[in-house]
Write a protein that binds this DNA or RNA. Structure first.
Length: 430
RNA sequence: GCGGGCGUCGCCAAGUGGUUAAGGCAGCGGCUUGUGGCGCCGCUAUUCGGGGGUUCGAAUCCCCUCGCUCGCCCCA
């Protein structure tokens, strides 16, 4: 390919698509504000070490998906593959946690070097929340509800909340040992992937998509059985809380999230509209992470929504129900007025008029082509504007503008260009 | 990283070895040198993602490469 083009998996967002993005982003921003979460923005570039220590050396993300390089000062840098580690780092660096618990949200691009496919890009965007210092089971419920409500308010249907508990660090360690022991006796029945994970990340074998492996695992010791009584009580409290809020969920004892830092509650919200990459939102509790990154032991929980996937689901919902809530999110972008103008003096006046009307809050499209009136009216019509404002030599000489309604067949009228307030009134009347 | 499918104008798309690469939409111009929504007319790919090769001759066959796509892996 000789023409310049974006890097593989790096996608341009064009104005049409961005309209939907902005609706979703402003929905989210408002949702978080009402819920008491403050925004945080952290650098896209961090030390490689942050992610190695935070996410875990044995994970696929750190092992093979990071965009890492050394900068001119010989520092090992990585484009962030996820948001949590950065948020924790920033909170520690600025002593935020000494002021008590922090409820934070963020939005922005993340980078993972993977083979692109439906719902998966190398640069993608997440909106996420992190509640640092959240201890109770009730906080799990609130955070999950925060995600559920955001998606619901956008009109996304067909979602499923999957829930599991990984137990405490000790529970997890004990189970890991038990599972490895059990699987090692059946190595001959494992596929290549699972064998490799046996040493690197055995819990991940649980959510293998290989049917034979799943059948084998039916006989294996379960994570649920390995939970301590405390962990089990905690998990039950989370479930009761969700039930009390009327949020439906499905227990998935094989849900194991890929990053090492998760403990206790783990969840995903999936859509049946997405193909293989079905997870729209993923999150969970990470009680050990903050201590691991050098802070005082602090429990925390958070989640992230994949913007691209959310938009895909929204588009599917719009297609399925053109009058539904999702469809209504994107309003028309037709201008209030389209300025038809031609002639030296008229064009100067037209620009001034457009500027004044825009300052008054109207959306005004100014034709800059200087082409024949017929052409300009054609474009005015296509723009969907309710009014055409006409400025030619005749009008310019008299200091007037002609207002022509484009929707009905009302009469045109002429107005003095200087009387902006009167014109604004006219354009605003339905 | 592994496997399958695909790549013709901004978008959709015909063409599967033989002179000039259909058509539709959009765009631009004209009919209409100051008035739109309809209509009619015209223009817009020396070139078929890129590079090699086979052939008298290739968009059509082969190889390499890039990209897209679906699945695996993994996750948002």
């Amino acid at each position: 390919m000789s023409q310049l083009q974006s890097l593989r998996g790096m996608v341009d967002l064009l104005p049409e698509a961005l309209q939907r993005w902005q609706v979703v982003e402003s929905f989210a921003r408002e949702h978080f504000r009402r819920s008491g979460f403050g925004e945080i923005r952290t650098p896209l570039l961090e030390t490689t070490d942050l992610f190695c220590r935070g996410i875990g050396e044995g994970t696929d993300v750190v092992g093979k998906e990071m965009y890492s390089f050394t900068d001119r000062g010989d520092r090992a840098c990585t484009l962030r593959p996820e948001g949590t580690a950065s948020v924790v780092r920033a909170s520690l660096q600025h002593g935020l946690l000494s002021q008590g618990a922090q409820k934070l949200w963020y939005a922005g691009p993340m980078f993972r070097y993977e083979r692109p496919q439906a719902g998966r890009q190398r640069q993608f965007h997440q909106i996420g929340v992190e509640w640092l210092g959240a201890e109770s089971a009730r906080s799990d419920v609130e955070v999950i509800a925060l995600a559920w409500d955001l998606l619901a308010s956008l009109g996304v249907g067909g979602l499923e909340l999957e829930l599991n508990s990984l137990g405490s660090a000790e529970d997890r360690q004990a189970y890991r040992t038990a599972l490895v022991t059990w699987l090692e006796q059946r190595v001959d029945q494992l596929d290549g992937d699972s064998r490799a994970r046996l040493s690197s990340n055995p819990l991940r074998i649980l959510d293998s998509k290989n049917i034979d492996i799943q059948a084998l695992l039916d006989q294996a010791p379960t994570l649920a059985d390995a939970l301590s009584p405390e962990s089990r009580l905690r998990f039950e409290a989370v479930q009761q809380g969700l039930t009390a809020l009327g949020i439906p969920y499905r227990l998935n004892p094989r849900l194991v999230r890929g990053l090492d830092y998760y403990s206790h509650t783990a969840f995903e919200i999936t859509s049946d509209q997405l193909g293989a990459q079905a997870t729209v939102c993923g999150g969970g509790r990470y009680d050990g992470l903050i201590a691991q990154l050098g802070g005082a032991a602090t429990p925390a929980i958070g989640w992230a929504v994949g913007m691209e996937r959310l938009l895909l689901v929204l588009e599917a919902a719009t297609k399925a129900d053109p009058n539904g809530a999702a469809a209504r999110l994107v309003g028309t972008s037709a201008p209030d007025a389209y300025v038809v103008n031609r002639g030296e003096q008229a064009e100067t006046m037209a620009l001034g008029l457009a500027r004044a009307l825009r300052a008054a809050g109207l959306t005004v499209e100014l034709d800059g082509s200087g082409s024949a009136f017929g052409k300009q009216f054609k474009r005015a019509d296509r723009s969907g504007a309710r009014w055409a404002l006409v400025l030619g030599d005749e009008e310019a000489d008299r200091g007037q503008v002609r207002l022509k309604p484009l929707l009905g067949q009302g009469d045109e009228g002429t107005w003095a260009v200087a009387e902006i307030a009167a014109i604004v009134d006219m354009l605003r009347t339905p």
